[in-house]
Structures are given as C-alpha cells and as structure tokens.
Design a protein around this nucleic acid. Sequence first.
DNA 1: CGTTGATTTGAATATCCTCAACGTGCGTGG
DNA 2: CCACGCACGTTGAGGATATTCAAATCAACG
Lengths: 266, 266
Amino acid sequence: MLDAKASVKHAGCGVAGALRSIPVSSSPGLNHPNPCDQCFQSRSCLQAALLRDGSMDRGGMAKAAIRLSKGQRLFATGRSLDRVYAIRAGSFKSVLRCADGRQQVLGFHVSGDTVGLDGFAAQLYLCDAVATEASEACEIDARALESAARDHPILRRRIQSMIAQSMMRAQHNLLVLGSMQGTERLAYFLLDMSERYQALGLSSREFVLRMTRKDIGSYLGLYSETVSRLFSRLEQAGLIRMTRRHRIQIIDRAGLAALPSCPSAH
Amino acid sequence: MLDAKASVKHAGCGVAGALRSIPVSSSPGLNHPNPCDQCFQSRSCLQAALLRDGSMDRGGMAKAAIRLSKGQRLFATGRSLDRVYAIRAGSFKSVLRCADGRQQVLGFHVSGDTVGLDGFAAQLYLCDAVATEASEACEIDARALESAARDHPILRRRIQSMIAQSMMRAQHNLLVLGSMQGTERLAYFLLDMSERYQALGLSSREFVLRMTRKDIGSYLGLYSETVSRLFSRLEQAGLIRMTRRHRIQIIDRAGLAALPSCPSAH
DNA sequence: CGTTGATTTGAATATCCTCAACGTGCGTGG
DNA sequence: CCACGCACGTTGAGGATATTCAAATCAACG
C-alpha cells in the first residue's frame, strides 16, 4: 500500500508524486476545475461538500468566485482563518512576512489547488496568498467545511490529506534549501512544476512560469540574478529551452533529475 | 488578543515566543514533566487525557515510558502513526530521510515536547525521531488521544495548537534557510534553544547543546566545519562563550539578535 | 592510558552575492 | 498604432561566504 521510502523523495524522484502518495487521496487535489456529478454523489470534493451544505448552489459556482488582479492578496498573515480558497484560474504564491520586512515565498499554487489549509489547525492564516497573475478563486467557508467534514468521513480524510500535503511539502522544502545547491534546487523546482501541470492535464514538457525570477529566487533561497544565471546554464547544457522568458520547455527530464548532486549533503 | 505582526518573527525576535503566541495555548507544550492535579482536573494535557482514558494510571507514568540510548529511533519515516510521544527526559532530533541517503534535520526536541504530531493529519510519521542522548519518552496511543480529543474541546484545541506549532516552525525555518546567512542562522538557533530551555524553567543564559555540530549544520543548511567556525567567530566577538565544546553561555543576547543582517534578503 | 570519534583550524576552491550596466517586453497614453 | 516609460530580466566583474580536503587537537570511554 505504502512505500515508506517512496514517501520522501527529492528532485527528480517526483515531489508532487511523493506528496500524492499518502493514503486516502488518489487525485492531486480536492477540487475539480469543474465539479462533476460523480464527486457530487460521492461528496468527496470541496465543491460537493458546499453544494450539499447549501452555501453554494449547483450552477452558481461563479457567483462565489473572487477575481483578483496581479499582486492582490487573498488573505493576510495572522488574520483569523474564516475561509479557505479553491483556485479556479490563475496562480498564487504563499509569502511569509517578517516584522522587519523580510519575506520568504513558501510556495506556488495553481488552478485546482486549495490555499489557506496550512493554517487550519492554528485557525489563523500563516502566510499571505498573493496572485501572481489575474486569477480567480472560490471562497469556502471554514466553518461550513468543518461541519461538513464532521458528517462525511471521506471529506474529512480528504481535508486531512491536503493538510498533510502542505506539511510534507514544507518539510521537503527544508531539505531542498538545507542540502541542495542552486542548480539542483532550480531543477527540483522545474520538475515539481512540471508534475503539477501534468496533474492538471496540461503539458509536463512545456509550460509558462507565471512568477518572477525574484519570487523563484525567494522560494529557492537564491537571488534573482543567480536564478537567471542558472536558467541560462541549464539552457546551455541543453536541458531546457526558454522562449519569451517565461515559457519553459523541458528537453532532458532525466538530465535535470540527475544533476551533479551534492556528494555528502551535510 | 493576537498581534498579527508578532505571530511571525525571526532570529532575535523570539521564535519560541512567536510560536507560542497563537491563540488557545498559554503554556509552551501539552505536557508537564510531572502531571499535576490541576491539569488532571482541566483535562487539558496529554497525560491527563490518558489518565482519564485508563490507558495509563495516575502514578504509573514511568511504566509507560520508553528508555532510548543515543542514536535509537522512536519512530521511522513512512510508518503508520499509531503513537505520539511525550519526551520525559533527554533530547531528540527529527530527521527527514531521502531515498538516496540524503538527510535533513528538521528540528530538535527537548523534555516536555511532543513528537510525532506533525504526521497526525497524514496518519504517517513524516520523519525519523532519533535520540541525541540517553532519553526517555512516554508513549501516547494515537487512537486514544483522538477519541479523548473528541470528548474534550480543551484537549482538542491543545492538540490543534501543537500541530499548528509544528507547521509554523517548519515554515519559519524555511525563512531562516531561505533568507539568512550562516552567522544569522546560528544566532537564531542559539536564541531559539535559549528560549526553549527557559520555557522549561532552566537557564536561558547557559545550557548544553546535546546535538553534534553535524546535526546543527544539517538543521541550518551548513557543513559542520562552517558551524564550528561560526561558533568560534561568535565567541571571538564576545557574544557567547563555550566550555567543553557543548556548554554554551550567552553573553550578549542583544548582540546575537542584532547581527549584521542581510540587507535585502532576496 | 590509549583508542576513537568529534571538533577545530588551515588553505585552496567553488558558489553565490552584490553592484552595475544593459537589454527586453509590456502596458499606457498620446 | 506607435512611442515611451517602466518593471523585469540578463550579463559581467569583483568580493564575500561557504565548501572541500587535510591535518591537528580535544574529549569521552572503555
């Protein structure tokens, strides 16, 4: 059922895959871009739960959706968590903000992801969620979700599974920042994004990175100039190709996965 | 009630304090080294919950305690989570293990801490817990705990609060690894440990680090040689004093907190 | 009291940061 | 529609920081 070794992986071993390998959930996220009859019946996805709950009517998904332009925040660190959000279109970043102005990008989120769940236990948003392009998200009332989860074990386990994913992702990223060097971190990032786009039914070989070099840098613990240089180096090595700066084509997936890795890694 | 800015801090601002500032919990951990009548009455601590539950009798805490020698594991990554552990004596490290042998120390735990809770949502241990010295831990049955939590809102919120703490700690450490340089990371580590010992009623000014330089290095994303050099530099700067290599004395707390910080930090 | 593993220190090197200049693409408004 | 401004991205050079390999020192333990 569960391969202990497979549940913790790293660049090239498939992060998204590993995160998905915890029991319970078979699909990448709780949300379908379009809620389907099947999930409505099984009450296994967030939309279905809310439909049941009456807080959102069947055909009226769009009514509950919020539109955000680039740079707008979905929620802010420290605020009381009253809603979580299902991303319907576009993309977001999670940002941890320090009192002294320092920032750390904790993650990126695309259509189908749910954001805010990492603060579910704390009942507080643990970070800011900022749109990295014009985006659309669907509000989900946290109380309604909690009560729906109480009644429906499947939904409850799904939510648990998603919270667990954010925990595992955070811990895995600690490994990335703590024991990989720049090139490897970037490769890990690209392969991770590739897998996530694939999980969305999009191409895993070619995709557009919606975030800035600076955001990638923050996420990977590097400066934007370094990120830029590493992109160039990967391109020169024939592992990727870039067009118009944000469109990435992965040429040699295996090459990315098997970069000159740190020998001992601390 | 809650200061949003205070809930995310960094080196020198008091990590442990920040982590404690989430609502619900007033004390640093769920466990008292010695369960008291008060907490038995309020059913607000783990021991009390288990006493109530009958899985552990009042005076018999020691009977349920496990003794581990240095290097032994309390649990292993990927295993099904059936127990969490309250540390009664000694200290542990959490280690994330990669399929390729790479390791990352995720955190250190001392007496009074509870380990394993980060995997509660996943129902899997997300990391290894390894004793860094001869230690003693108290088994807590996860099912019993869950059912006790169902009946007692106070206990439930305590557990939620502890899970939230491990999430916040992981995310905060991402900021440390992602946007601080070596000296600052080490200072952050020392101040964090200092606060944690203080929370235990021990001296915050002088304490013994039970882990190796290599473990500290892994935790901070540095090599053990670098850690050693940074210790020496802090000592030469008059900020700390070291005796017998592991006993640390903090001379100038403010100086540690206000190190030449990264100007822009990505 | 000697062995062993951990720690410290040194020197050379690699990596990454920093500052600076320049190029590119995008959106705005003329 | 084009020109302009502006934010973002790329590239270069030099310097700071951390790694790597090597050797010496220290402390704990049998």
